[in-house]
Design a protein around this nucleic acid. Structure first.
Lengths: 201, 201
DNA sequence: AAACTCAGCTTACAACTGTTCGCTAATTTA
DNA sequence: TAAATTAGCGAACAGTTGTAAGCTGAGTTT
């Protein structure tokens, strides 16, 4: 009456999703959290879970999608910051590191399931990363007037370096995190400079 | 009589280790294999497991150690091949890719536990990777006469790129693997060239 | 030969898992 | 208002897990 059945259902669904994200701390992966645990955390009976998701797998894919969404929002934010002044590399890395600090469980999910035990999750994460790489490629082509193929190679390398550094930053304190950020910025510059002087065969 | 008790025990222990490695295929991580499963695979009673390891955790750390050992053997092999002719980058990447193809479960273990759910495993893998990076740093300093700090930065970037490419190669067929190898070789050259023209501030 | 050690076994238990079934109560539709 | 839908629940199931307790028999030491 005050809340329609549909609204209530969506709310419960979101509770489940939030409960799952909450359980994904530094020592739990998707494959290690149980349906009953999620239900408990979400405040519903185990069997009620099935009213919202067919499976834990279905929930897992939903989480990966949500994480990817959050990541894309981050990219947009970074682009805005770049356009309003500040170096591309510095701004991007800073934004990324802030994201990791603020949404550690979200990044952890992507990182972990990228090499995780479910082929479906791995594929889903891979798609998100490729999205990331493609957008960076376009950006490089537009700004640095590098040929597309070269830009793609460069972008892939950069994304790999940033994600790898992100993994390290995930379990570091702010001071170390700063240092990791500085290092990866320099590494990105190496790639960039290398690409600018590259003579294809 | 024919076999001493000590010999037999070591043999069983190795059976357990092999059984565990066998279970670590593309859809199982250390945290996802159970003591009983390992025991079943090793052909012993579940409770007999405790005669050899205190825990599944203790077994896990043993596996990480063994994997690291295998990796270091690989490095030595690569160095030998480099010294007997062939480019550093090409030879290293080729060796690495061959390793992944031949010991996929070993590399998968390292890769997965690097971002896995156990802090102890993560630390253990990290140590192995740092070993890798340090040795590469020394190599770069010796061969390319780059300053140590710069060599370390370059080595870290290279290791990250190679591991990341290895992850991708892990679930690809030989044709794709070849392509991944070629791409990462070029990316390593970008880093190398970037480092050679780098003017520190 | 007798005493000891100990790798491996069987049995047992409590805790947890995913999932089926049928019910209830409230909202929605007719 | 009557009928239909449905989110959520409790009870129950068969299966799995880690681990404790105690026994056996073969290798080892005395």
């Amino acid at each position: 009456m005050f809340v329609s059945r549909q609204e209530q259902k969506l709310k419960t669904r979101q509770n489940i999703i939030n409960a799952a994200f909450g359980l994904l701390d530094e020592n739990r992966s998707l494959s290690a959290i149980s349906l009953r645990e999620v239900a408990r955390e979400a405040g519903i009976a185990p069997t009620s879970f099935y009213r919202h998701f067919k499976d834990m797998d279905e929930l897992g894919l939903t989480l990966v999608d949500e994480a990817g969404l959050t990541l894309r929002q981050l990219m947009r934010q970074a682009r805005r910051r770049i356009d309003s002044g500040g170096g591309v590399i510095d701004t991007s890395v800073d934004t990324f590191m802030e994201f990791i600090a603020a949404n550690s469980n979200v990044f952890r999910l992507l990182l972990r399931e990228h090499t995780g035990t479910s082929a479906a999750y791995r594929m889903a994460v891979l798609r998100e990363i490729q999205h990331f790489t493609e957008e960076l490629t376009d950006y490089i082509v537009a700004r640095l007037s590098v040929k597309h193929q070269m830009a793609n190679l460069q972008a892939e390398a950069m994304v790999r370096l940033v994600f790898s550094a992100g993994a390290e930053a995930l379990e570091s304190d702010p001071a170390q995190r700063q240092q990791i950020g500085d290092r990866v910025k320099m590494q990105l510059r190496l790639v960039q400079m290398g690409a600018s002087v590259f003579k294809p065969k």
